[in-house]
Each structure stands twice: as structure tokens, then as C-alpha cells.
Nucleic acid binder design. Structure first.
Lengths: 199, 199
DNA sequence: CGAGTGATTGACTTAGATCAATGACCGTGG
DNA sequence: CCACGGTCATTGATCTAAGTCAATCACTCG
């Protein structure tokens, strides 16, 4: 969820703040759910780790975003929340949130819209994963993340993070970007990628 | 969404029924959203088709399920809905649904829970797609779809459908299943797969 | 009966995973 | 202040699993 504007002031105040070091876990899969998290600073990533240790990127919440909305309706967490950077988060207890959602149709509507948005986002990710060629997958990502000018993509986090996000090894991503640069399709500069022609 | 129990009787009555032939589209990406669909019989699949014609499976709604919940909060559809079998659906206009959600906290809660459930479902799918080896991916699917006895998986639809669902070519799926059968890990019979040892 | 689709298997190719090595950079503790 | 450990970025070599192309058989539906 992008923002938690719909959260009434009294609930916001009731929150408990917690700080996390990079790499620290906010919660782990299987633990009982306690409430909604609001990221105040830094970045927290939702990931699943399977038996063989492979990590699946699920979602990344930056400052202002919320985490674990879906867990409000589930007794336990189904993924891990790991701080990607040093971060501080605020926890709003489950009961308080559910109460607000029950009482305020506006809050409920905003929450539903946010969930619906997430569903669409996840579907987009799923669509991207279905693209076989690394080049096309990267292109799909770039096309959906260009800024207002239609050619600039601002990257958040490291390329390694982007690689897991895209479901590629970091090597494959580096090579793909290198090839695209060589082919003149993109130009890289720091944390930005510029497309040679608008999408 | 599994069921639409929360839909008040008066809204249900107001719905418009439509029948679809196999392969027919209920709506297409880009069209303006009109409301919530309730599948009365048959199966409707949500898919996205990319530029090269590749199809991404997003969701499949059987009799009793609903479709396009997320679209209630979006002006246009972001995927195609295609009848996987002959089907009949009932359409509840957007305005009527939003009104119910605004007025009834119970309905809203059920709807939110359903959306949250969908979010978790999609995350599970995403996790599965991150598994590289076809064998492990199939196993992940089987493990999460065993019936009450812990060893039987009831398949819905064709193996080809399952293949797209898993993000594999149908050939790869056939081969993987054949290998697993040969290795004695599973046993197939009609539309069922039995695991040799419980998960 | 013929068209269309699903299920299945074979042969071949290739893209990306894997393993490996290097240089740049960054924070930190002595 | 600098050496050291850690991570990121990058590139090379190799390997293999899955994609692609292709053919066959069974089945169903009109």
C-alpha cells in the first residue's frame, strides 16, 4: 500500500514504533499476526524463503507505505518481512485497525482500494515472470516504470535487488543490461536508466 | 473469491445473467469496468496476453466464485476474462456493489477478507514461479493442493491449463510428470494425482 | 467422418543458471 | 588514518534443463 492516509489520527498515535537494522526481521512466516505496520523510514521487503534457501521477492514497502495488510485477516504470517535498509516502522494493533474498518466506510473503502491495487500489482508481477526472455522481462519492467518524461526509469535499491524482483540471477541481469546498453537501447547513469526511444 | 455469500439478496436479484461459449471473452483488457461477475456455472479464466501472444494465467473462477473484484476500484480492466468452458455468469453493477460495501460493515469485511486472501494466493503463485526446476515447481503445486487425505490432488481442467498455470510448456509438464511417475513419487489416474508419501 | 484438441514422446537448440574471479566502494575498528 | 571484511558490480567459461519444433495417437463433437 502506498500511503496510509485513511488511518485516523487517534489510531496513528496509538502505534508502537520499532527500529530495525539492515537485514533484521520484522516478523517471520508462521508467527501470529499482530497488526498493520507502517514504514516511517527505510525499506522493508516481504520475501518467502523456500526449503532450498531460495528467496522470492514479494513486495517492498518504502517510507510511507504499509505492510502486512492481508495478514489482518489471517492468524499467522505467510512470509518474512526483512529490513532492506536500516528502517523504522510503526505497528498498529490488529483490533484497532479492524475496528476502524468496521466503523468508517471511508477508511474501509480506501483499504479495499489499496488491496485491489495490490492485487493488480501482483498480477503484473506474475505476468512479468511469465516472460521467458530476460531481455523482454527487463523491458516489461522498464516500460511499466518510466517516469513522467516517458524515458527515464529511477531505480530503487541495488541491481541485485532488482534481479530478485525480476526473477533473474544478478549475473543475468548485468549481462542483459550490458547487452541492451551495447545495442543502444538504453543508457545507464548511476541509479537511472534512460530508454533510447519512449515506450 | 470463492463465494459471494456476503452479497445481499436484493443485489443478487438485480444481477444480469449472461451465457458464454467456451473461448468467448467476458471482457477484454482496456474496456471500462462495469461491475462484479458471479460465476453460476462453468469456469472463467483471467489471463493477460502480451505483445508476442503469450498468455499468462492469472486466476480461474469456478461456479460460485466471483470475478473482477479488483476492477471495482479501477476504471478499466487490466486483463482478459475468457470462458474456459461453456459458462454462465451474473453481473452486478459496480454502483450497487459499492453501495452495499459502503452500507454494510459485514459485507465490507467479507470483501476485504476475500481480497486479502487473493493477495496471499497471488503471492503463493509468485513464489512458485520463482522455483526454477520444473520438478520442484510441480511439487510445490502438488504440496499446496493435496486434499484432506494428504496424498491426493484433484486436478481441475486439462494438463495444458495446469501447465500455463505453472508457467511451463505443456511438454515440460508431461515430461516432468512422467519422470515423477517413473521415479515412483506419484501415481496418476484420470484427473487425480496421488503422492507416494504425504507432504 | 473429418476437424479440432489434448496427451505424449523424440530430437535439437539455446538462454540462462552456476561456478569463479576481479575491482570498486564503504564503513569500522584498531 | 588506514587496513580489512563485506557487499555490489561486472565479466568469463561451462553446463544443463527447459523451450522449440515435430510427429503420433486417442477422443469428442457436430
Amino acid at each position: 500500500m502506498r500511503d496510509a492516509d485513511w488511518l485516523p489520527a487517534e489510531v496513528r498515535k496509538s502505534g508502537i514504533t520499532r527500529t530495525l537494522k539492515r537485514g533484521e526481521a520484522l516478523f517471520r512466516s508462521g508467527e501470529p499476526t499482530v497488526g498493520l505496520y507502517h514504514v516511517l523510514s527505510g525499506t522493508v521487503r516481504l520475501v518467502r524463503v523456500d526449503g532450498s534457501g531460495r528467496e522470492t521477492f514479494l513486495y517492498s514497502a518504502d517510507a510511507g507505505g504499509t505492510l502486512a495488510e492481508a495478514s489482518l485477516f489471517s492468524p499467522t504470517y505467510h512470509c518474512d518481512a526483512i529490513a532492506a535498509t536500516a528502517a523504522s516502522v510503526r505497528l498498529y494493533p490488529k483490533a484497532a485497525i479492524l475496528e476502524v474498518l468496521r466503523r468508517s466506510p471511508e477508511a474501509a473503502r480506501a483499504f479495499m482500494a489499496a488491496l485491489a491495487h495490490q492485487v493488480m500489482d501482483l498480477r503484473t508481477q506474475l505476468e512479468r515472470r511469465n516472460i521467458r526472455a530476460a531481455r523482454d522481462r527487463v523491458w516489461h519492467f522498464l516500460a511499466l516504470n518510466v517516469g513522467a518524461d516517458g524515458v527515464t526509469v529511477q531505480l530503487h535499491g541495488s541491481l541485485k535487488d532488482l534481479a530478485t524482483d525480476l526473477g533473474l540471477t544478478h549475473e543475468a541481469l548485468y549481462r542483459t543490461l550490458a547487452r541492451m546498453t551495447a545495442a543502444g537501447e538504453i543508457k545507464r547513469s548511476g541509479g537511472k536508466i534512460k530508454l533510447s526511444r519512449p515506450v
